[in-house]
Design a protein around this nucleic acid. Structure first.
Lengths: 332, 332
DNA sequence: CTGAAAGCGCTAACAC
DNA sequence: GTGTTAGCGCTTTCAG
């Protein structure tokens, strides 16, 4: 492996000059020597050792991304969006899966300091904010728009999204609209959830009553979707529309509902959230609130680079979500 | 940021002693001083700078993973499997998406050298093998079991898997079994594809004839699956079973077949390949050959670490695939 | 415009 | 068992 010194010898200059040329920092290097150096480096197939460079400059051009799980399509898309942008900017992306576990997140944060990454992109709950700050590293939070806005954060605008979905249902004649909140009842009702806020604000502004029986707290997975279908199939006065926890949940709901002879969308319109690939593959194709997954990753990536550069960034950047109307919903 | 020297001062020892203790390399350090050093480091919240360490030791404890696309569930699972293992071993995982594009792969290979990763995990076609070797870095290939076996490689055993699926269909009375190959006809028939080899070997050993009309070459996606359903719906003598290009393809096939009043599995049994989450969510639930995605990543990770250590590794490690029987297939 | 020299924080001979 | 010293390969003053 040839070093800067080898290049210097071949080009018959000092290694500082080589460094000046090769780091792009060639203020005050004559065009002539510049070419001489570049040619020498090219000829001998020199590749710069970023490790040594980083040790000096204290920047690694590497970002740590901490997400719950890449094998969840949502996070995979976010990762992809981020990596695409980083790649363009000459950055590398270290991937870390936390499963939402605080201990794992702490472990990765520690690693970040040792490995000297330039910044951290993380999806986390509010309990770890202090520790994140204590790393002393630049960071950007991803997701959880409802949380504190003291820090740079990019997430999707669920408040507006849910409102959009409710408007669509309302305009199509629905008045008995059930809402599923992917959180526990306490935090949901304590005004911490954008989704619930959006729901209750909408009801209020449309002179509708908040009914406990149309409000559900469930885990955003297939199983809970199926369970809700069971529950609803037994209701005397079931809703005519439902906004699911997410697409997976909606898929489970539809499967079980159909098994119980509830027709979708004739009996109940269902709207998912996320727009995962599955959404357009099930039958009926799912109407859903599309979250800008890839964009979320890209904007988060842009933001962390801005933070690193010391630029001013938006503290709580909410990306618009989009209602995709497919086959699982209809007017009444 | 405190350094090893600060710790040395506090503990009143030399920095080499500190290094000896903190790098775990404490041969010939008295228990007493060891404790003294550890306490000092702990107190001042010292965190080791791996950059400096790496520059000296020439190892970064970082592996580069080059896959086509994380937002494809198959690769996401592989990435997750690898990262889980690396994490346990104290390694970091740099993620790179190539979209199968040679130029992108080359770019990442170049990066690997500069960033001094300890090794490379890559899914690639055979055209880039020389360039990969030329990096001088340890590497392990992922996937494409049918390709050259001159290098360490881990992939799933499609030959055996397809055989298993065929046996299942045969034992259940099927004699008109169609095969879809996710490659073009030339390479498929030129004995390069494990899948096709497995198919023709099976036919031969069961005294069945290879019929052109039951052999299809398609892209492994939803659209091509739908198209094949159209084609098959028009056949005079359609197959009673079909092994799809993959699960996505199978989903497309089923959707379109049902639309054309072909009953699955009553009229045609269909078997997918991959076992993506979708497989168990569509109706009917898909019988499929499950590839050991997570395991693939894990074993690849294990293997690269072995290669780095200079240990002997299996050159062409084929992981067993598993037939999951669900609802899309039945006996005749 | 270019070179000499110091040093980033760590490890690894080599002494004692 | 512990300290001294010389770098790893680069960037960056500081001279000239």
């Amino acid at each position: 492996m040839s070093s800067i010194l080898d290049v210097a010898k071949v080009a018959k200059v000092s290694k500082s000059t080589v460094s000046r040329v090769l780091s792009g920092n060639n203020y005050g290097v004559s065009e002539e020597t510049k070419i001489k150096v570049e040619k020498a480096a090219e000829e001998m197939g020199y590749v710069k050792n970023y490790l040594a460079s980083s040790l000096r400059t204290n920047q690694t051009k590497t970002i740590l991304l901490i997400i719950p799980d890449v094998s969840n399509n949502f996070w995979a898309e976010v990762a992809r969006g981020a990596q695409d942008y980083f790649d363009k900017m000459g950055y590398s992306l270290i991937l870390a899966n936390s499963d939402g576990d605080n201990n794992k997140q702490l472990k990765y944060l520690k690693m970040a300091q040792r490995n000297k990454v330039d910044g951290i992109l993380i999806n986390t709950n509010d309990t770890l904010l202090d520790e994140i700050q204590n790393t002393g590293l630049p960071f950007v939070l991803i997701g959880n728009a409802n949380s504190t806005s003291r820090f740079p954060r990019v997430s999707s605008d669920s408040y507006e999204g849910i409102k959009r979905a409710l408007e669509y249902l309302y305009d199509n004649g629905h008045r008995k609209i059930a809402m599923v909140s992917p959180s526990n009842k306490d935090s949901a009702l304590s005004k911490v959830s954008n989704r619930v806020n959006s729901y209750s604000d909408f009801l209020e502004s449309h002179k509708m009553e908040f009914k406990e029986e149309y409000f559900f707290c469930c885990q955003p997975n297939l199983k809970d979707g199926e369970e809700l279908a069971v529950k609803i199939s037994k209701m005397q006065n079931p809703p005519t529309a439902i906004i699911a926890a997410n697409d997976l949940f909606a898929a489970g709901f539809i499967n079980e509902a159909v098994r119980r002879k509830i027709r979708i969308p004739e009996d109940i319109s269902v709207i998912g959230v996320d727009d995962i690939p599955l959404a357009s593959m099930i039958n009926p194709k799912l109407t859903t609130l599309e979250k800008p997954k890839h964009l979320l990753g890209k904007v988060a990536a842009e933001t962390i680079i801005s933070v690193i550069k010391g630029e001013e960034v938006i503290q709580n950047n909410k990306l618009p979500v989009n209602l995709i109307i497919r086959e699982s919903s209809k007017s009444i």
